[in-house]
């Protein structure tokens, strides 16, 4: 039994470390405290609401979030805007609908059940407007990048002057954290580009953190219930394991004495 556990834990450790070394590229990303990390991790509502503001006022002019609906903004575990606020937010966007009885498409104010409107009609239009580079959809962006939240957070603050000797084409920018260091997106955030409704000072660092938190929620909208359920499930399993272990000892004691 002891040997078994020893070996099994060695296997698990080897397994996890190799997997981790595969996935994480060795880059030192900027670090910050994410409230949603860890077993009891939860989103910071204020940060999510501010992050949504940064997304709508800055990112959404180029980046779509096509898998999200406005109703998500009011759901539990998210920014948790009130039902009324969600309706107001949705109604502030023009949504294409149709065809109507005359067979024509029309626009109407958005409803909570509508998906986030997209800045471009299709990928080609997005590429045409952005010098050939498609601004990726942000719905699952955090999960689609090896470094996850740390990568996005660092990238947003990673704009620097290119080192001497590096020649950048027009419309290409230097970013310390970008793969290959060349990025088509110009620095999206600058001091005070957003005026937070709750009065928080809109530093680049603050906005980066808020919008990254928002993107994490967008990619994992059920993270909070997952953490909660996980804790309950594992506590339950440990208790049951102990009970089964005791039962096993009792049952096997019949044999031990007989031998």
């Amino acid at each position: 039994m002891k040997n078994f556990i020893k070996l099994l834990s060695i296997i698990t450790i080897v397994f996890i470390t190799t997997v981790q070394s595969n996935s994480a590229e060795k880059v030192d990303y900027l670090k910050t405290d994410w409230s949603f990390k860890g077993i009891f991790g939860k989103f910071d509502r204020g940060s999510l609401q501010r992050g949504y503001q940064v997304y709508t006022e800055v990112c959404s002019s180029c980046h779509s979030m096509k898998y999200l609906s406005y109703r998500n903004l009011g759901e539990k575990g998210g920014p948790e805007f009130s039902e009324e606020a969600v309706k107001v937010i949705a109604a502030s966007f023009e949504v294409n609908d149709g065809p109507n009885a005359d067979g024509e498409m029309f626009t109407r104010p958005g409803k909570p059940s509508d998906k986030f409107i997209m800045p471009y009609d299709n990928v080609k239009a997005a590429q045409a407007a952005n010098g050939g580079a498609y601004p990726p959809d942000m719905s699952v962006l955090v999960k689609a990048r090896g470094g996850g939240v740390d990568y996005i957070y660092s990238l947003l603050q990673g704009y620097e002057d290119a080192p001497s000797g590096m020649i950048l084409d027009e419309g290409v920018h230097y970013n310390k954290y970008m793969y290959g260091n060349k990025i088509k997106m110009s620095a999206p955030l600058s001091e005070g580009v957003v005026e937070y409704r709750d009065g928080t000072e809109a530093t680049v660092e603050q906005m980066s953190k808020d919008v990254t938190t928002f993107l994490m929620w967008a990619a994992e909208p059920h993270l909070e219930s997952r953490h909660r359920m996980g804790f309950k499930a594992i506590v339950y399993l440990i208790i049951l394991t102990i009970l089964v272990y005791l039962s096993m000892k009792r049952i096997w004691s019949r044999i031990e004495t007989e031998v």
Partner: peptide, 22 residues
Amino acid sequence: TIVFAFFVFYSPNILGHADNYI
């Protein structure tokens, strides 16, 4: 199942590859 649950609830994407979310 305890190990299994740990993966499912606390690092569900660690065994996958980020590119598959593109």
